[in-house]
Design a binder for these strands. Structure first.
Length: 110
DNA sequence: TAATTGACAAAGG
DNA sequence: TCCTTTGCCAATT
């Protein structure tokens, strides 16, 4: 495999991997960091292939902190379990204190 | 080549 | 933020 063949997906994975422990971010934030603010959907689409990658996809949620992609995990509760294991409070598929644990790559990563 | 897809986001009601 | 509509764009078929 060629590292040079970095598709949009690879860039997404690269950002997601750098999400700190106990922090979460949104698809739009990642897209914004990649310079494709209007391509938030592409980020989500990319996560479809994240199964083959070592990507903490559970740390990526939509802008409302809703665990929309949890159905794509093995178990329906796996995503929430992983987050709670990191100290993230999740209730009814929604992250609590989202503003407190939100990780903005555009500011933090730069 | 063209049509479809999608784990989103913003705007309007 | 509830529901619906619209825009967006790379990847897939």
């Amino acid at each position: 495999m060629k590292p040079e063949t970095e598709s949009f997906f690879e860039r997404v994975y690269d950002v997601v991997r750098q999400i700190p422990y106990g922090r979460v971010t949104s698809y739009g934030a990642i897209a914004n960091f990649l310079g494709a603010l209007k391509s938030a959907r592409i980020v989500g689409y990319a996560m479809n292939n994240s199964h083959d990658k070592d990507v903490p996809a559970h740390r990526v949620v939509n802008r409302k902190g809703l665990l929309t992609g949890k159905h794509h995990f093995k178990g329906v509760n796996l995503m929430q379990q992983l987050l709670e294991n990191e100290g993230v409070v999740v209730k009814d598929n929604q992250i609590q204190n989202l503003e407190s644990i939100f990780w903005n790559p555009s500011e933090e990563l730069k």
